[in-house]
Simulated assay, not measured.
Amino acid sequence: MSPAQARQRFRGGARVPTAGWCRGWTQANLIAVPKSLRYDLLLFAHHNPRACPVLDVGEPGTWSTALFTGDLRTDLPGYRLYRDGAAVADLGEVVGEWREDLVPFLIGCSFTFERALLAAGVPVRHLEQGTNVPMYRTSVPCEAAGRLSGPLVVSMRPVPARLVRTAVQVSGRYPMVHGSPVHIGEPTVIGIRDLASPDFGDPVEVRDGEVPLFWACGVTPQAAIMASGVEYAIGHLPGHMAIMDVRDDDYRVP
């Protein structure tokens, strides 16, 4: 399926997590903030590049970018609306909510290297189970910028111990879409008490002999929006991504 075909399905009402969709095409996190906050968000991303790798930015009031030629208001399978730092609604489209001063940012997503993990023999459990990837707020603070501060959010994939090195090496070749894990092993070290209770997404099975690997996650800007009490913002529903017109391999380094 091409990105345009997927976007047409989402525009038509498909409401599903996008892991595994459009294999070979890059997916991205969306966060749209008032233009008065755009430089703060750019600086926040600069200070926290593992969590917030910026792939593209639109002009104020626009709903497409150079790398996403669809409609950012309708062509994702789910959106989350924020007012004064609180998530107030999950929506299927945001045409009526898209203000003229909103600046859309597309942030790298770890779904981009999942095909490479599979090709290297590393299992991806949420794909096996047909669920959303589990994501967690951590106790690790991001570096603040302007009016934005908040915790690092991570995604988790359980990996057999013998394949941990492979997973680190493979994902490390995609530095613009989070790169290698930020933490390996014991989740309580980064403030995660229960892997079965993610803050976003769905829990997955962690089997005997597997090690939880944690990657920085592009939902981190949404956590900053909440922690900072931002007056208005629109993000993707976590795990329900923007499928862009650029290939995964474009973000792979040798």
Rank of each mutant, 00 (worst) to 15 (best):
F113N: 01
R115Q: 13
L118P: 01
L118N: 03
A119H: 08
V122F: 10
V124W: 09
L127R: 14
E128S: 12
E128P: 05
E128Q: 14
Q129V: 07
G130D: 03
T131E: 06
V133H: 03
V133W: 00
V133I: 15
M135Y: 00
M135V: 10
R137T: 02
S139K: 03
V140D: 00
V140E: 00
P141F: 01
C142F: 00
C142Q: 07
C142D: 02
E143K: 11
A144G: 11
A144I: 00
G146P: 01
G146F: 02
G146V: 01
G146Q: 01
R147T: 11
R147Q: 11
R147C: 03
L148H: 13
L148C: 07
S149A: 06
G150L: 00
P151N: 03
L152K: 06
V154W: 01
V154P: 05
P158R: 10
P158S: 07
V159D: 02
V159F: 04
V159P: 00
V159N: 01
A161D: 09
A161K: 12
R162T: 05
L163Q: 11
L163R: 12
V164Q: 08
R165E: 15
T166Q: 13
T166W: 13
A167I: 10
V168D: 06
V168N: 12
Q169D: 13
Q169A: 15
S171V: 07
S171A: 12
S171G: 04
S171P: 00
Y174W: 13
G179M: 06
G179E: 09
P181C: 03
P181E: 07
V182A: 07
I184F: 04
G185L: 11
G185Y: 07
E186H: 09
E186W: 07
E186F: 10
P187M: 06
T188S: 14
T188A: 14
I190T: 00
I190H: 01
G191L: 04
G191Q: 04
I192D: 02
R193M: 07
R193D: 14
D194T: 02
L195N: 02
A196H: 10
P198R: 08
D199R: 01
D199Q: 09
F200H: 11
D202M: 13
P203M: 10
P203W: 13
V204W: 04
E205V: 15
E205N: 08
E205D: 15
V206Q: 12
R207W: 14
R207C: 14
D208I: 02
D208A: 14
G209A: 09
E210F: 13
E210H: 15
V211M: 05
P212N: 09
P212L: 08
P212Q: 12
W215R: 12
G218C: 13
